[in-house]
Design a protein around this nucleic acid. Sequence first.
DNA 1: GTTTATGCAAATTCTTTGCAATACT
DNA 2: AGTATTGCAAAGAATTTGCATAAAC
Lengths: 135, 135
Amino acid sequence: MNTALSILKQHKLRVTDCRLEIINEFLGKQVALAHSDLEESLNSQFDRVTIYRTLKTFLDEDLIHKVLDDRGATKYALCTHEAAEHNHEHVHFKCEKCGETTCLESIALPKIPLPKGFKKHEMSLLVQGTCNKCN
Amino acid sequence: MNTALSILKQHKLRVTDCRLEIINEFLGKQVALAHSDLEESLNSQFDRVTIYRTLKTFLDEDLIHKVLDDRGATKYALCTHEAAEHNHEHVHFKCEKCGETTCLESIALPKIPLPKGFKKHEMSLLVQGTCNKCN
DNA sequence: GTTTATGCAAATTCTTTGCAATACT
DNA sequence: AGTATTGCAAAGAATTTGCATAAAC
């Protein structure tokens, strides 16, 4: 079971209100969140700086990952840790109407034939359009 | 033939030093460039603000397009206008060693089966790894 | 009790806007 | 000549850093 508490414990991070609430935001809404989204939904409960630092900590611990955005905004989403090997390779879908970015984890990434001399390490795919809620 | 001059003429833009040089940067290095890259390579020849505005003009004219970056930096690359219909849907490759982002225009984007209710408009694919120069 | 996280202030960086001077057609 | 572009100053976001206080283990 994945509670905010158990996630922090798994990563051997100290349990603080800010961290718990931020993880709960990610668990609650199943979409990628930007710093500004968190600041807003946590309603100035925590300092802007604390949120930045929490996100950085989570990134370093591979608890969240960055999600590409067409507009250059930095968004984050929880990593799923089910498998032994960790990867961030989902398809992300950004809705052009509501602006939400969802991880489409069920969809496998295609194999891309690269030119000679290029070696793939990881890849990310961002699809833009309208989501199921806005259609 | 694609000279900086002819590109500006095609887009009915006024010919200025700054615009010519920026296009030449893109033509010269075949990689995606960020504002800071241009500022550096043009060596403070033009004001920071002018470069921002030039990039915005070029974006509006579909002369360049934004390229996704894993680190959240905003990068741009020239659009290729060969075909009648314009699209930005290349595969982009970012080298983790040298940091350069190249458009792999020859590689077709795969079709992605989206869940019910999702409708695709456009998509971008970023592959990260090591490029042919760094391998 | 020791270590780590938080909040506040302030510094940096990134990007945009207003306006007068300049360059383009 | 008329219009668009540039440079400078300055405003406004976004993000980072330093340090003392507070909280977690």
